[in-house]
Design a binder for these strands. Sequence first.
DNA 1: GAAACTCGTTACGGAGCCGTTTCATTTAAG
DNA 2: CTTAAATGAAACGGCTCCGTAACGAGTTTC
Lengths: 118, 118
Amino acid sequence: MGLELSTAEVLNLWHDVHLTLVRDDEPDLSARQISILLTIYLEAPPHTVRDLAARLNVAKPVITRALDSMGKLGLVTRRRDEKDRRNVLIQRTVTGALYVERLADTIASRASALRDET
Amino acid sequence: MGLELSTAEVLNLWHDVHLTLVRDDEPDLSARQISILLTIYLEAPPHTVRDLAARLNVAKPVITRALDSMGKLGLVTRRRDEKDRRNVLIQRTVTGALYVERLADTIASRASALRDET
DNA sequence: GAAACTCGTTACGGAGCCGTTTCATTTAAG
DNA sequence: CTTAAATGAAACGGCTCCGTAACGAGTTTC
């Protein structure tokens, strides 16, 4: 179905979306942060620091710090796991959901705009 | 055409590609660097620092430093414009072309893999 | 209950990017 | 010619992120 993209199409898409993200005044998330954020919002809970670190193939402090900075932006929240109080459960927020939705809109919009070019 | 992507599709695509980029050991380029690199490789020359800065809506030193770091990675080169020696022309390299091609492959591969999920 | 283990965080030194200002070089205008 | 403008680079201070090595709190094992 509709996901057969040519080389030129995917590169233009990647270019246009990044251009849009750079131009606006939102804080640019790093590739790591994007990966973490979308993992949290796209995959089924629960999400723990350990799981995310293993999934992204990075050290645990990377996750901790990414949660710190994204938490400061209101994109995610942390909560202790009452079942096993060593664990921290990462949770979604309204702000984060809006951010993800806006990102999806940007990508989809740039994708459909590609039709008018080329 | 063929670029009508649903919200879920674009988010999964974005997620999967970033996950792939984070997992490998390549140095992650920032959003600004990606924008600059793809502008150079997708749009017709000549490219100058001034033009790129205006196009991305950032200050000129941002471009200079991005060219420094990407030049260190062998992704781009600089050359003086002999017609107007104030200008610097940014040029493509073989390494850079391979990098862009590999990025396109990653994106296209993740896009087609989406068909087997959902 | 003591020791070993697990989980997430903090601490530390190092590296990279950012925004602004300043500068050297080159070209254009008077 | 002299002056003004334009271009890209360098300098400076600040902020963020990184990787490794500790650390405290909680849990399991014996």
